[in-house]
Design a protein around this nucleic acid. Structure first.
Lengths: 140, 140
DNA sequence: TTGAATGCAAATCGTTTGCATCTCA
DNA sequence: TGAGATGCAAACGATTTGCATTCAA
């Protein structure tokens, strides 16, 4: 991990390693605030500042390690780019379930081929929103 | 339109009518700020306040007239719920192209059937992000 | 008339930034 | 050692909210 930062032209600082580590350990979409609180709670670094977390997230996104996910929350969430998948989000309790859509990439290519104004699409969002079984139960 | 507000339990005020009208006229995803500036520029109402626009957007979303769209901008965008479609967004110039995905609803149902924790999915996002032909050209 | 809607300004909240200090390479 | 990284606090921008005033029904 240290090597990765260095080869990418960034210093391998404790803060950066701790932030990236948090994503590997949780394997969930995380916001800056969640990462920050986790680092403080787990004492992953002797000292950490929210601004540093924000700066690190931007770097990790630029490096292609993290991807922005829209979960319709107040803040921005990121997750690891590896093993591409999508989410079903409960709009009441914020529970998240992952799912994969094997044919999606192919269909996107078909869509892009039809477009006259776009030839390259590099990212996409595809999340489902609804009520989980529990919340659906209590909503009645 | 006035009737619609009244039947929904809201007063049909000039501000609300003007906001909704802006969406019908532009038929594009709009942010609160864009709506507000349009109302001021077009003198659609004698007096309007940004807070009122925000409040109206929330009501129209609740009434199922507007839907939230994630375009990865700084602010939240809304668009009319009618004629469901998705967007290809140029991340450089913010140009937007619409597209339809006829089979999507069916595939979503298939995905939900496989889920053990979710039975009902009421909304979904599906937007593509990339560079439009122009921007792709200048990016090199 | 009257409860709901609006305008205004202040408050909030997530995020960014300037700058002095510190630290990795 | 020195450029880059961090901490801190102030700045920012989008959105929300409290409250006095106005208005649709």
């Amino acid at each position: 991990m240290k090597e990765f930062f260095r080869k990418s032209g960034y210093k391998a600082t404790p803060a950066r390693i701790a932030v990236l580590d948090t994503f590997f350990k949780s394997a969930r979409p995380l916001s800056a605030e969640i990462v920050y609180k986790d680092l403080v709670a787990c004492k992953s670094v002797k000292k950490i500042n929210e601004a540093t977390v924000y700066r690190t997230l931007i770097i990790l996104e630029r490096l292609g390690v993290l991807r922005r996910v829209d979960l319709r929350k107040e803040s921005v969430y990121f997750e690891l780019v590896n093993n591409h998948h999508h989410h079903i989000v409960c709009t009441m309790c914020d529970q998240i379930e992952d799912f994969e859509d094997a044919g999606l990439e192919t269909r996107i290519q078909t869509i892009v081929k039809k477009s006259s104004r776009f030839k390259q699409v590099t990212e996409h969002s595809m999340e489902l929103f609804g009520l989980c079984n529990q919340c659906a139960h209590y909503a009645h």
